[in-house]
Amino acid sequence: MNIGRAVVTGASSGIGAATVRRLRADGWEVVAVARRADRLEALAAETGAVAFAADLTVQEDVDRLAAFVEESGGLTSLVNNAGGAFGLEPVAEASLEDWRRMYELNVLGTLRVTQALLPMLTASGRGDVLVLTSTAAHGPYEGGAGYTGAKHAERMLTTTLRLELIGRPVRVMEVAPGAVATEEFSLVRFGGDAERAAKVYEGYEPLAAADVADVIAFALSRPHHVNIDTLVVRPRAQVSNTQTARS
């Protein structure tokens, strides 16, 4: 198994936290990165991961992260998980600020961290850049133009980077989940409206964060000559971004 040292962003909850737990259980060294230091410290105490509090929309924080990772032993794998959706309004009514936040976090945050850590990933001789996009990166849905646009851009960052790194010892992988019931994704999207958030997952069994972490661990643990270019994972009930069988 391909055990190494991973940086996981967006690690304070949801898929990020589940990925830290899974990789640690598999024997990886993990640096868990997120803004909320209290949650990271609790996760570190639980799993033995190293906590590093940083806001990935702030270049100085990303520079601090890169310096810390280099000084503490480098890394082999980067899991770009930090992201999020804000709002579900149609284009005619969309919030420019929500769109700006989505691009800053999902696209520019991924770009900043990847740029900062790529030299170390290359130097490792067996580097991985794994980006968590979404099925939103593969198709539109009503009300989702801001999020699907950001995730399409993140996907193009990922696929273009793969082309640009040809011949170098770095794999570039995309994992694109469909509906995942985490404690915060829909709650954040709907501005804390718990009732509206809960309705997203009513009438079917969505993915859990641990399901996606399992897929991430699978992709990272393949022999290094094997590159999982794009892996789309949905709950069985969800056949597209706009069609879900509900009871």
Rank of each mutant, 00 (worst) to 15 (best):
E154F: 02
Y103F: 15
A198W: 06
P140T: 12
E93H: 14
S124Y: 11
R112T: 00
S240Y: 11
Q238L: 05
A92M: 11
W28P: 02
A136T: 04
R171G: 03
A137W: 08
P206E: 07
Q243V: 14
L165H: 03
V79A: 09
G84Q: 01
V239Q: 15
A217S: 15
V30S: 08
A51H: 06
V30A: 11
L117A: 08
G139R: 01
G167F: 13
V226D: 10
Y141C: 01
L163K: 15
E184S: 15
A37W: 01
A51S: 10
P119E: 09
L56I: 01
P119S: 14
S13L: 08
W28M: 07
T242P: 03
K151Y: 09
E46R: 13
A145D: 09
N106Q: 07
G192C: 10
D211C: 05
A210Q: 15
D229L: 09
R236D: 10
R246Q: 07
T158N: 09
A11T: 04
A25C: 11
G149F: 08
Q59V: 05
M173V: 05
D128S: 02
T242M: 11
D26K: 12
V226F: 12
N227H: 04
A18G: 11
A11K: 01
D26G: 15
R36K: 13
E184R: 15
A198E: 13
V50P: 03
R189T: 13
D61E: 10
A94D: 09
A237H: 07
T160P: 12
S124Q: 08
A18L: 05
E41G: 08
G109A: 01
L96P: 09
H225L: 10
T133R: 04
D26A: 13
S124N: 03
G10C: 01
G149M: 02
E183P: 07
A208F: 09
G125P: 08
E60M: 07
S12Q: 12
A11M: 05
T57P: 00
Q238N: 09
F86I: 07
A85Y: 01
A116W: 02
A123F: 04
I3N: 05
G87Q: 11
A208K: 14
E142P: 14
A210M: 08
F190G: 03
T114N: 06
T230E: 15
A209F: 03
L105N: 03
T76K: 07
D128K: 04
V58P: 02
F68I: 01
V188M: 10
A213T: 09
G87E: 02
A137Y: 14
K151W: 04
M1S: 14
T47W: 11
A136F: 05
G167Y: 07
R100K: 15
G83C: 02
E154Y: 02
V239P: 10
A136L: 05
V8S: 06
L207S: 10
S221Q: 12
G87V: 11
R162Y: 13
V175W: 00
M1T: 12
V20F: 10
A18T: 08
A92T: 14
T242H: 08
L78D: 03
A137Q: 04
P177V: 08
H224A: 07
G10T: 00
I15F: 06
G87C: 06
A123E: 09
Q243C: 08
N106L: 02
V20H: 11
L130W: 00
T9P: 05
V188C: 01
N80S: 14
D211P: 06
V239A: 10
V20P: 03
T76L: 08
T9K: 02
V239K: 12
V8P: 02
W28E: 01
F185P: 00
P169M: 03
V239H: 11
